[in-house]
Write a protein that binds this DNA or RNA. Structure first.
Lengths: 228, 228
DNA sequence: CGTCTGATTGAAGATTGTCAAGCGTGGTGG
DNA sequence: CCACCACGCTTGACAATCTTCAATCAGACG
């Protein structure tokens, strides 16, 4: 078995996902019996707008982007699903259809739980419900933040924040942008050209340093934060 | 007792709020014993950024706006709370502080449930948890939509959508804008001046008709929807 | 009648988007 | 192993949208 081929058992999924983590061993076992597995190659869609939203999707390994398509055909990136993230909760109850797309950015393994199984689980496991409310609450907060930034701050400010957030946690000086410029652009609500220009602008002002095409180094975090 | 003075009993609050509506009579009674009441005059704040988020807030009567303040001091409207809407869930678990402001737009009565009481309630009442997940799921969907529109569509398109949504449901030809232009502006991520200009533009193109300062009539809904 | 708040309009300017061309690099096939 | 191709990134010139600042106007209310 090669380095890239992983076996993802049901237990793996359950352990990975925050909303399941503090459940009892028994509950976890129950959850494990309910998940099914799927694998997507880079570029494949986990779901598309209009698809029936009949299951909760958990990323067991890999990375996927979730985005909407506007009437005029523009993409708007909503979030990046990392290992352990899940999606589908929003549409799982209220709507019957997805209104967004999820596309694998690399080879990605996901676990799914069907809507009906998940609802039963929720009724039986109060802790799970609390975890779920928690996770959704955080998500609401994130989205409120994203909306506010997108409409009140300049592209330069949004980009600066994005760089700070992306580099945060990594102790290393140099960090790699996890997305293509085009995807960063739709995440920040702008265009690849503008991203390119703003990055060179920040470089010229000495706040960041460009190592390679997608590797950068933060030189002056304080000044980056103050861009308005 | 005058027209504007209402008595809001605990039962009223419970009945008003969707997340409580399909609970058993017994559960509703329990909820009713836990709520406290507050009254705010127009302009007063229900909470501010930085306040401890220690309770769920339910609007029993009136209207309030929820907004964030950007670093540069710009307001971003997040939502309007109508009678029966609630807020505070987002911060109720994950964070200990509000990161937004809620301000009464008219005299407003609210009911509150403390964080600890609400958490107990959640554990005891699986149906409530499911309702909660539902409500939060809808909210996530709304926010995703708002973010996408704000960053991909022109102001004219966003305004057209706003007018269509605001007039939807009302059978009457003429409808009243529920917000001041300034608030509509921050909701759509723009300025009052631009709102003003776009409204006259839409009027000149014959898609809407201006009745009074804040009363309008939709003349050509189809064309409004197609603005890109 | 005067004042205060919000709405409108104009002119100027900045930011960002669009279109088009050129560059660099990594991967593929000859 | 090299040449070429494809894709993404960069850069430039230009256009459009939107914001800002300022002045004026309209309506509500004491």
């Amino acid at each position: 078995m090669g380095k890239l081929a992983h076996d993802h058992t049901a237990e793996d999924c359950v352990e990975l996902v925050t909303i399941f983590q503090n459940l009892s061993a028994i509950d976890k076992k129950t959850v494990a019996t309910l998940v099914t597995h799927h694998h997507y190659k880079s570029g494949e869609y986990l779901f598309s707008a209009g698809d029936a939203a009949d299951s909760l999707i958990i990323v067991a390994h890999g990375q996927a982007k979730v985005f909407q398509m506007s009437a005029s055909g523009k993409e708007q990136m909503l979030r990046i699903l990392q290992t352990g993230d899940f999606d589908g909760e929003a549409a799982l109850f209220s709507n019957s259809e997805h209104n967004s797309y999820a596309q694998a950015l690399m080879d990605t393994a996901v676990c799914q739980i069907s809507r009906t199984d998940f609802q039963k689980l929720l009724q039986m496991t109060p802790e799970l419900a609390v975890n779920m409310v928690n996770a959704l609450g955080r998500r609401v907060g994130q989205l409120e933040q994203q909306t506010t930034e997108a409409t009140t701050a300049s592209v330069e400010s949004r980009l600066a924040n994005y760089l700070l957030e992306t580099s945060a946690g990594l102790d290393e000086e140099v960090f790699t942008l996890p997305l293509k410029k085009k995807d960063i652009a739709t995440y920040l609500g702008t265009t690849p050209e503008t991203i390119s220009r703003k990055l060179t602008a920040l470089t010229k002002q000495g706040m960041i340093e460009k190592i390679s095409n997608n590797e950068f180094k933060i030189l002056d975090a304080d000044r980056l934060m103050l861009i308005d």
